[in-house]
């Protein structure tokens, strides 16, 4: 019985690995972004880095805390679910730093990023279009393709 359980768990993990999907970090075409690294992206979304190289302000965006793409982004980039970052944001609130603004959908994310200099967000590859540019790719271990059918 125990062997069957272990085998099932391994199969689930393997199938999840095989269907692993990316999340694209996006900015507007007029926002500069150099020195690609996950730490740099982390610092921007944790609001430890407030300015970009060109001297403009970063405006990071998040999806709702229960959005599966936000969950995958947070778990992959920070190794933590969004709610586990709340104590960090409590500390930042005391230092006068607010968490990223939250938008309701990937389409809202695309519109905001495309129209706002310094805005930076994330979407699934299937929702990418010419309004934005991809500056970083977060490779997750999650199967996110099913969220492509729901529209941006």
């Amino acid at each position: 019985m125990m062997n069957v359980r272990i085998l099932t768990l391994l199969l689930v993990m393997l199938s999840s690995q095989a269907r692993a999907d990316d999340i694209l970090v996006i900015t507007g075409h007029d926002t500069s972004f150099k020195n690609f690294s996950s730490k740099r992206v982390k610092n921007i979304f944790l609001r430890k880095t407030l300015l970009n190289e060109a001297g403009g302000g970063w405006i990071p965006l998040n999806l709702n805390a229960d959005d599966p793409i936000r969950l995958a982004f947070s778990r992959t980039l920070f190794n933590l679910p969004p709610e586990a970052l709340e104590p960090y944001w409590n500390e930042q609130y005391f230092q006068g730093i607010a968490p990223p603004y939250v938008v309701a959908s990937e389409e809202a994310m695309l519109r905001f990023v495309a129209g706002t200099r310094g805005a930076i967000g994330y979407i699934l590859p299937c929702h990418l279009d010419g309004r934005v540019k991809v500056v970083f790719k977060v490779t997750t271990k999650y199967d996110l393709k099913l969220y492509c059918n729901t529209g941006a």
Partner: peptide
């Protein structure tokens, strides 16, 4: 302001009144 945002002002418990 410098930020061309379209996010409305809001209040969140524990995060204060935010005016983007």
């Amino acid at each position: 302001s410098w930020a061309d945002t379209s996010i409305p002002p809001s209040y969140h418990w524990g995060r204060g009144i935010s005016w983007p």
